[in-house]
Design a protein around this nucleic acid. Structure first.
Ligand SMILES: [Zn+2]
Ligand SMILES: [Zn+2]
Ligand SMILES: [Zn+2]
Ligand SMILES: [Zn+2]
Lengths: 141, 141
DNA sequence: TCATGTATTGAGACAATTTCTCATTTGGGT
DNA sequence: ACCCAAATGAGAAATTGTCTCAATACATGA
């Protein structure tokens, strides 16, 4: 998830204190892969800063969300998961087994620019998910 | 949400019993607008079938989800909300205030066909969300 | 360096949402 | 009308998210 120190730097620039719990959380977000739930952030964060509390995880994730640095998404779980707030995220989600496949290119820059103008909206990222039935679940049917 | 009786008919065709609780739930989904949470389905469903239990709502929503007839999404809430499992859903979501704007056309049919072929995936719907800062929150900054 | 004031934190109570269990009921094929 | 697997309701339990408040730690300036 982006260059290391990216999130901490953005927090500092926005005028927030760079505390030990926050450092642990952003380090987890930057190091570990994608799609982390708040509970996963808590568990991983405690390896770095054992006192870390659940409330602080939620508070920091909300903070980063409001700054547009991360964004919540929904996958199979019932839990919210967080992805990088910049750029694009592209999934194929199987409605039967919950499997998630990723792809790279989507070609919606044109549409994004159009919408940004029409709604006077400053776009920072997007999520494109196709929902349907994966190969395996098609044959098992 | 689609022609009336659509969901009930699909359930029946898939071999599931058409019970009173299920009829109430699909009627709610078809009549009421979009983005219903499970609790909203429960409350509205009880107007039709007062005995309706929370567990049955969750069970039926999961059933419909696995059949690809509806799909869960995430909005401002922490609760899962359900939308029609066919076609497209398009949102602009403000990361600051949580406001959600909708738009109609997206023009990704080409990409959808390409991915369906590449992943051997039977696509039934898609969700396209742009994430950023709305007009109001831009000025209040 | 050190004192100061405020933002931030941890702990746990609390609330909301989702899942599970199991005895009972019911739809639909016969 | 009968039968039985499928489905249900009720509530316990688990998971996820929010809130409160006294204690702490960061950043700023002396
Ligand atoms: Zn994209
Ligand atoms: Zn699948
Ligand atoms: Zn679309
Ligand atoms: Zn806004």
């Amino acid at each position: 998830m982006e260059p290391s120190g990216h999130l901490a730097e953005a927090l500092r620039r926005a005028g927030y204190k760079l505390t030990a719990p926050r450092k642990a959380i952003v380090q987890v977000l930057e190091q570990e892969g994608k799609h982390l739930s708040s509970n996963e952030v808590l568990v991983l964060g405690r390896r770095i800063y054992p006192l870390l509390s659940r409330a602080t995880v939620y508070r920091t994730l909300e903070l980063l969300t409001n700054l547009g640095l991360i964004r919540p998404i929904l996958l199979n779980d019932t839990a919210q998961r967080y992805v990088n707030g910049e750029g694009g995220h592209h999934h194929l989600v199987c409605s039967v087994c919950g499997a998630v496949f990723e792809f790279e290119r989507c070609g919606i820059d044109r549409l994004a620019a159009e919408l940004a103008e029409r709604f006077d909206f400053r776009i920072r990222s997007h999520l494109l998910e196709f929902y349907g039935i994966c190969r395996t679940c098609q044959t098992h049917a």
